[in-house]
């Protein structure tokens, strides 16, 4: 009996336990409702193509939320970078150069977000909400509402970022791995990671110890914008064009959901990259499930909402228990 209790205690100590259990539950439910085709090679590749942009954005968002802020503008950043990139490329500029400009614009947006929050002291929710509306509509303005096509699908650039290897395995999953590892190293092994945790955990205390919390937050905002724009470039390369209209609208909520379900607390101070990646798989698996079963797209919203709630409740309870 005692051994079981010890084992249970050890299991509950794993930060990502809620996320893991949720993931397995979701997969199980999907298998039951959809059948073994859900885990077919083809579908796993599809799931990866949905998960990757979410996860890439969510990993940087994790750092941002650990430092105590949030960014709702990621969806519009993910939309505007490929828009600018393709417009420039269609005008004849080199595609790598165009992408650089597009990503540069994203850095700039992240900088604005950071300044609005730290120097102008606007709550990050409102500031990034406003930026989201502005940037999204600028993106619409640039495309005039049409979708962009006509870029050569087989050029090297597209292959590097949006190609497929071994049949259907999307390269973007490798990019996800690279970025996740980089950000994990940043969070866990560098002074900046420590500063981020301190800023979110106890801002006053952090300032007293000499940490420039403003700089930490601005850098995190820029990192988040960068990953969102990178996700946009990846999607551009994968699809070969930009679908009109609601491109990227779900990204903000999906990535925030991934971070939160993965165990990062909204008030900041703690969180893990691994948890976020698991959370991204949960959200991605759900989105994929709704895509391949056309009836449940309405259920999807309801279920995702419910799952976020349950996962957050469980995480909060565990957090309280841990202290």
């Amino acid at each position: 009996m005692l051994k079981l209790k010890n084992y249970l205690n050890w299991v509950l100590k794993i930060r990502e336990i809620v996320a893991l259990i949720t993931l397995f539950t979701i997969i199980f439910i999907c298998l039951v409702l959809i059948g073994p085709i859900f885990l077919s090679i083809n579908n796993i590749a599809n799931i990866l193509s949905v998960v990757s942009p979410i996860a890439i954005t969510a990993t940087a968002m994790t750092l941002l939320m650990i430092s105590g802020e949030i960014d709702l503008s990621v969806g519009s950043v993910m939309a505007i970078t490929p828009t600018i990139t393709s417009l420039l490329a269609l005008k004849g500029y080199n595609i790598f150069f165009s992408a650089l400009i597009g990503i540069g614009i994203a850095f700039f947006i992240g900088l604005i977000n950071g300044i609005l929050v730290t120097k102008f002291k606007i709550k990050s929710f409102i500031a990034t909400f406003g930026m989201m509306v502005i940037v999204e509509n600028i993106a619409h303005l640039l495309t005039g509402g049409w979708y962009i096509y006509g870029l050569p699908p087989s050029c090297t650039f597209f292959k590097i970022f949006g190609g497929e290897i071994f049949g259907h395995f999307p390269v973007m999953a490798i990019w996800l791995l690279v970025i996740a590892i980089c950000l994990w190293l940043l969070l866990d092994k560098t002074a900046f990671g420590n500063e981020t945790l301190a800023t979110g955990g106890n801002k006053e205390g952090a300032i007293k110890v000499g940490i420039n919390t403003d700089r930490v937050k601005i850098i995190n905002f820029m990192l988040t914008a960068f990953t969102a724009s990178f996700a946009g470039i990846i999607m551009l390369s994968y699809i070969g064009g930009i679908p009109s209209g609601i491109f990227g609208r779900n990204l903000a909520f999906d990535s925030i959901a991934a971070v939160v379900v993965g165990g990062t607390s909204l008030s900041g101070g703690s969180g893990t990259i691994i948890g976020t990646v698991i959370g991204a798989f949960i959200v991605g698996a759900l989105r994929n499930a709704t895509l391949i079963t056309s009836i449940s797209s309405y259920w999807a919203m309801a279920i995702v909402g419910l799952i976020i709630l349950i996962a957050v409740i469980l995480n909060t309870l565990l957090e309280l228990r841990r202290n």
Partner: peptide, 23 residues
Amino acid sequence: KLKISSFIVTLAMMMFLRGYALI
């Protein structure tokens, strides 16, 4: 009572209610 941030709670509720209305 459950001490969860109102942003997250109302975000989840927003998605849930919207889905329910569509259903």
